[in-house]
């Protein structure tokens, strides 16, 4: 009985003593911190994806609280509304940005861009990119080992085994930009997100001449310039044999899609324009051009849409 009392007593005294020590230590080393940082961090999505440019949500909320002008800070994952509520909470002007979506700009499917050698190394796009051009011979196209898929924290990217290309799920994509950094070929771009997930873009990054492109890929941009001529809004520019559609200027008129001889301009969640007298095409993806396309840039080619 005596030993029991003694034990309880010793432990209680020890407990009280340590509690006192802890209290003083806590007081001494207390870090003064703006309590709003915690509140802001709770409002942020907590994905810690780094899409804002900071190491994580905590760093972002510190910046939001400490900076006077938060116009340049934007969390792509949370979106405009959350940013607005955070700005209201902090009493600052809300940063504004229209919604964006990641776009993978390569249309070289296994069929259109056949493999000419067999890669046998580590299954990693960056590794492939360190030493050679890739299995298809196109130095600009999707390598297809999914560095971007691993980098995406939201499960928005997936590798389609049939095409060998990466596909973006626009609903899941938060435009954090991780894939843009991950892709060694720079195939991803954050583009304006139209209503109903509509999109239009040139699915090719090849800066080679048309003749070189068409040798390795039947779906690549050959830089013929037809799309540029037909565009009424000046949204299309051509640089180093490669067309680019500016999403800010584009009005989704889709005239360029019918002009493209190789089907390099992709449209998403939209129908193609009806071909003048004929019935409208049902498929969103244009068909491939005939192989004789683009041996010369000036070649007149029938748009292969029948």
């Amino acid at each position: 009985m005596n030993s029991l009392v003694l034990t309880v007593l010793t432990l209680s005294v020890l407990g009280v003593l340590l509690a006192v020590v802890l209290y003083f230590v806590a007081q001494k080393f207390k870090v003064e911190e703006d309590p709003r940082i915690d509140d802001v961090e709770k409002m942020l999505p907590g994905a810690n994806c780094g899409g804002c440019g900071f190491a994580g949500c905590r760093a972002m909320s510190e910046a939001l609280v400490s900076r006077d002008n938060i116009g340049s800070l934007f969390c792509p994952v949370a979106g405009g509304e959350v940013m607005k509520s955070i700005a209201d909470f902090l009493g600052k002007a809300a940063p504004e940005k229209s919604p964006m979506v990641a776009t993978m700009r390569c249309g070289g499917t296994c069929e259109k861009r056949p493999k000419v050698n067999h890669y046998d190394g580590a299954l990693n796009c960056a590794v492939v990119n360190t030493f050679y051009v890739g299995e298809s011979g196109c130095a600009f196209g999707c390598i297809g080992y999914g560095d971007c898929v691993h980098a995406c924290k939201f499960g928005a990217l997936s590798l389609n085994p049939e095409t060998g290309l990466v596909e973006v799920d626009a609903d899941k994509c938060t435009a954090c930009g991780a894939c843009v950094k991950a892709c060694p070929k720079g195939l991803f771009e954050l583009r304006k997100k139209w209503p109903k997930n509509r999109a239009i873009y040139v699915a090719c990054r090849s800066k080679n001449r048309g003749a070189v492109v068409s040798k390795v890929c039947k779906a690549g941009c050959i830089g013929c310039g037809k799309c540029q001529k037909v565009c009424a809004f000046g949204a299309i520019t051509i640089d180093s044999h490669l067309a680019y559609i500016d999403p800010e200027k584009c009005k989704l008129c889709r005239k360029c899609v019918n002009e493209c001889p190789t089907g390099a301009i992709h449209i998403v969640n939209m129908e193609r324009l009806p071909k003048e007298p004929k019935a409208p095409a049902t498929k969103a993806e244009p068909k491939a051009a005939t192989p004789n396309v683009a041996t010369k840039v000036e070649n007149k080619v029938e748009p292969a849409n029948k």
């Binding site: 000419v116 050698n117 067999h118 890669y119 046998d120 190394g121 580590a122 590794v127 360190t130 030493f131 050679y132 299995e135």
Partner: peptide, 8 residues
Amino acid sequence: TRLFAAPS
């Protein structure tokens, strides 16, 4: 012939 490619 199938050409293999891999880093060293």
